[in-house]
Amino acid sequence: MIPAPFTYHRPKTLGAALRLLQTLGSVARVLAGGQSLLPMMKLRLAAPAHLIDIGRIAALRRIRAGGGRLRIGALATHSMIESVPAVRRWVPVLAETASTIGDLQVRNLGTMGGAAVHADPAADYPATLLALDAEFVLQGPDGARIVPASEFFQGLMATALRPDELLIEISLPTAQRVGAAYMKMPNPASGFALAGVAASVALDGDGRCRHVRVGITGVASAAYRARHVEQALLGQEPTDEVLAAASAAAADGVDASADLHASAEYRRHLARVLTRRALAAARDRRRSGKQGLPSS
């Protein structure tokens, strides 16, 4: 399958990329790893007149830890997220999430920033980025602004990113000692999440939940935080029974998607079950201090 013709741009610097976006933003697409965009272009679901390839802007591929945050450049590939020691040390659940994406070849090219901006409703990262309180650094012509994950994912393939902005970095807090886990029910053919749940738990001195985050992908048109579940658990001792009771609210008030792969009710069911499992795994990891990393 042959994509429609386009004019190709390969800016070497962030500034050059932003200038191109300013003039061409409405008729251009940004190419990062291309593992979602190329399939769409080949099917002619996307036919941009201009393609802005940011793949050679080395500054966007950096991963740095410091000042209580891990800063991941938008072009870090899924393979890097899986294997880079700083990610595995500070946010192991993100490495775990990356290892479940696509396959080896896709992970070698696909980028976390590209996946986040693409905002496929069945993508894996959004759940985990919500559960980790990630922040998105969006660079526009007038400077950068920071958008929290809970405001970034807005709808079906829709995010807070404006046409003249570039996602340059995703940053995650590293100071809080949390246990976290990502659990998904993959579509057996594509590997995309029929439902995927990331949970993050911090406990106080008495073993009660001091901090809870639950991010859910695959179930609705955009990934969301299960705030009913989070609030129900605050101050509670996270026994299996307590987690199960709270998880029952994982899809409350959610307009669940239905397609040939799963009905809305099945997706709601998966959300509840996977929430319970992810919370239990997060709790166990917090208690034991072991994060259950994928092998690299």
């Binding site: 399958m1 190709y8 291309g34 593992q35 190329l38 399939p39 080949k42 393979s79 396959d103 080896l104 070849q105 896709v106 070698n108 090219l109 594509s190």
Partner: peptide, 22 residues
Amino acid sequence: TTNCGACTVLMDGRPVKSCTIF
């Protein structure tokens, strides 16, 4: 369609799907 891997080549030593890269 980026599923089967028959077109896999190595780019800078890493497997990639040559049907999904310009």
